[in-house]
Design a protein around this nucleic acid. Structure first.
Lengths: 223, 223
DNA sequence: GTGCGGATTTTTGGATACGAAATGTTGTCC
DNA sequence: GGACAACATTTCGTATCCAAAAATCCGCAC
């Protein structure tokens, strides 16, 4: 992907790369909540020294993804059922604000959302779960982005990342996968009508179903 | 304050200390939005090497207080009027959730809030602005804490810190200082009645006044 | 065998020094 | 005045080293 990229190849720092690698490891469930992260081995694995790794971990700690205990080390944050519920409570509160701030969308914007949802459809056919997760995120954040509330959207992004280690579990049965697409289509319809409150309601139902899927899949983690 | 502290003297890392020092510099307006931070000079000033400084800055960057541009350096995040409004929008959304989750407070809890508000009163007499700011924060977060929604409260804390460089300006006239105390008293009264919605309304008015004070004091920053 | 206490090993926290890369600045030439 | 090249500054990243704190291991007493 870095390959021969011409101009967009923004010379990125090691730290940013390490952060992304760690996120990918979380999505791939190569790192799971509660697990301890060894600085040295992670550095060796990513081909960098310990310093950028430590900076990356500090960054993820500030974000809530990692936990740090002095002289013991970093572990992936483990959320219990109550904490996970709080993350979703915050998502509901902030996403509602963003949706209420949406202007009437142009047909180009509506077309883009439709296109993104159809891309999810293709991944559903292929049963490409990672693709569905990525596509779903793209769909939601493209919609949020139309609000113009960039700081709020960034904050929502942080909240999504915080539940990343937990979010990948659901979507295992074919029915939930198709349901996601259907609900997205309903949202697009409501947006076309300019029915903001309708979108808020749909989104809340959409999110709540994800939460209950998640609870079922996890059987509410003990700690 | 660290002094001879016996057991509670949790051996704290340099990084945590540097983060706190930077926050203090922000409160003291020794660092102002847009200003560039030189790693080496900051390290020398705080008597540490560059490593903990860089980790501290990364942490503050993830929090939104600092901005980083590769090979150029860190600068204090500068918020324009619109962005500041977004921070306050998020505060309203999340603080409302927290207040709605408040249980009926015990008389000990109500007493504690009263005590904290009276402490602010003492600082108002002394015209100790830094003390008022600290006391105000203590009052609000003690109240928020009673909700039990610790993750949401942490997030609100982050939002407060994000507007820290801007928040210290208001409270310059005697009347606003006394107004703060009066409004706090009204909130305590509403809490005693268990009137959650009343507290939400009072808090929104309280916050909005701060925002307009702030806008007036800053004359909405240009960038 | 089991539990306890101390020594060893591992890991983290931090300092220092160095090289490489990028940015910004200065000065010269046209 | 504007373009371009040399220079200084700063950041990014590595390597190496040491201290301190944890975790682990081991032997001893019971």
């Amino acid at each position: 992907m870095t390959g021969t990229a011409p101009e967009t190849a923004r010379r990125v720092t090691s730290v940013a790369r390490v952060v992304e690698e760690i996120r990918a490891m979380l999505r791939a469930r190569e790192l799971v909540p509660g697990q301890q992260v060894r600085q040295e081995s992670l550095a060796a694995r990513l081909g960098v020294s310990r310093i950028p790794v430590r900076e990356a971990l500090k960054s993820l700690e500030a974000e809530g993804v990692m936990r740090h205990e002095p002289h013991v080390g970093y572990t992936v944050t483990r959320l219990n059922a109550d904490e996970l519920a709080q993350v979703y409570l915050m998502r509901r509160a902030l996403e509602t604000e963003v949706l209420r701030a949406l202007p009437r969308l142009s047909s180009a914007q509506l077309g883009e959302l439709t296109r993104l949802n159809e891309a999810i459809g293709a991944d559903v056919e292929r049963v490409d779960v990672a693709g569905i997760v990525a596509g779903n995120q793209a769909f939601h954040f493209t919609m949020f982005g139309y609000s113009g509330l960039d700081l709020v959207v960034e904050e929502i992004d942080r909240l999504w990342r915080r539940s990343e280690p937990y979010r990948t579990v659901h979507l295992y049965d074919a029915e939930s996968r198709r349901r996601v697409m259907r609900e997205h289509r309903k949202m697009i319809t409501a947006l076309r009508r300019g029915d903001t409150e309708g979108v808020v309601t749909l989104m809340n139902a959409h999110r709540d179903l994800t939460v209950s899927d998640l609870h079922a899949a996890l059987g509410l983690p003990p700690s």
